[in-house]
């Protein structure tokens, strides 16, 4: 299993409804990824602003995305390639 940590700003298309954020697709390194499943969600309230974190599947790979309520940016925090 290959794990890469990062903190890269990415563009994400997401639904915000029912108090829950659900990413549908994101763009990273010039490539578009369609989210096929949300594995887990968690909220981090340490610090001045909350951040909302998700582990999502796109194809066979797992991506950790986060949305910061402070700067209103989406980030890609981790990529996991099962191997």
């Amino acid at each position: 299993m290959a794990v890469e940590e990062m903190s890269e700003a990415v563009s994400v298309r997401a639904d915000f409804s029912g108090g829950v954020i659900t990413p549908r697709a994101f763009r990273w390194n010039g490539r578009s990824y369609r989210v096929t499943a949300v594995n887990a969600r968690w909220e981090d309230r340490e610090g001045a602003h909350a951040s909302y974190h998700l582990s999502v599947q796109a194809g066979g790979d797992t991506f950790f995305l986060s949305f910061s309520a402070g700067d209103m940016l989406w980030r890609l925090d981790r990529v996991i390639l099962p191997g």
């Binding site: 299993m1 594995n39 887990a40 582990s55 066979g60 797992t62 950790f64 996991i80 099962p82």
Partner: peptide, 10 residues
């Protein structure tokens, strides 16, 4: 268990 939630492959 958290690790297994985060990464389905686990």
């Amino acid at each position: 268990s958290v690790e297994q939630r985060l990464v389905p492959a686990l």
